[in-house]
Design a protein around this nucleic acid. Structure first.
Lengths: 106, 106
DNA sequence: TTGACATGCAGGTATTTACCTGCATATTAT
DNA sequence: ATAATATGCAGGTAAATACCTGCATGTCAA
C-alpha cells in the first residue's frame, strides 16, 4: 500500500464524491459518473486515474465503455496503519496531556 | 470533522512522520520534532500548523516552548465515515465485480 | 459503411503547496 | 541587563495540482 497515493487521492472532494457515487452503485461508466460531477469529462478522468493509481478503484473495459469498481482494501490498510495505532493510545494520550497541563516535568 | 483538511494533512510524508514521532513520545516541542526532520524549522512549523488546523494535533504553550499532542479523534471519524462504510460492502462489491466480468448485463 | 457515442491523449493556465531566507518577538539564565 | 534560546511572522520560488480546450481513437448500430 502506498499511503501517500491513498491519502492524496482521498484529499479531494471530487474524488471522495466519486467513491460515494460508486458506493451507491458500483460498476458505473465514466459517462455515468460525469453526469453527477459538474466538470469536464477529461477532468473527471484525471480524478479517476488518481483513484486507480491509489488502487481505490479498479476498472474493466466492456466494449467502448469503462466500468469502475471500488476496491476497499487500501482503506482497510489505512485503518490498520493509521487509525488502530492511535486509537489504542487514545486514553493514554489524554492522560499525557492532562499531566502536561498540570506541569509534567515536576 | 473537516475531511478535506484531515486527508490533506495526512497526504504528506513529513506530516505522517510528525504524527509517528508524537506517537513515540507525545508532547514534544517544535525544536525536538525538528531534530528528526531534515528541513528548516519554519517549514516544520507550516506542517504542524496544517496538522493543528485538521485537529490532528493540539498544542500547549509552556513558557517559550510549544508542546504538541496527538488528537486521535479525527482519525476515528475518518474510520467511521470512510472505512466502515466500504468495509461493510466488501464482499458484495467483490460479488458485483465477479458478476460484471462474467457479463453482468445478461 | 457511416454517423453517433464513449473514451483516450496532448498540451495550456491559474492556484496551491512545500520548501526556503531574513528578521522580529518573547522567554529564560547568567 | 544581556545573551542565548524557542518560536512567530513575512515574503519569495519551484513544483505539483485541478481545471480547461481541442483533437484522435475505438466501438456500436442503422
Amino acid at each position: 500500500m502506498d499511503a501517500d497515493k491513498v491519502f492524496k487521492a482521498l484529499g479531494d472532494p471530487t474524488r471522495r464524491r466519486l467513491l460515494d457515487l460508486l458506493c451507491e452503485k458500483n460498476g458505473q461508466t465514466l459517462g455515468q459518473l460525469c453526469e453527477n460531477l459538474d466538470m469536464a469529462r477529461q477532468s473527471a478522468t484525471q480524478h479517476l486515474d488518481l483513484l486507480e493509481a491509489a488502487n481505490l478503484v479498479n476498472t474493466v473495459k466492456r466494449g467502448r465503455e469503462k466500468l469502475h469498481f471500488i476496491n476497499p482494501v487500501p482503506l482497510h490498510d489505512i485503518y490498520e496503519r493509521w487509525v488502530r495505532k492511535f486509537e489504542r493510545q487514545r486514553l493514554s494520550l489524554l492522560h499525557d496531556l492532562k499531566q502536561e497541563l498540570e506541569g509534567g516535568d515536576q
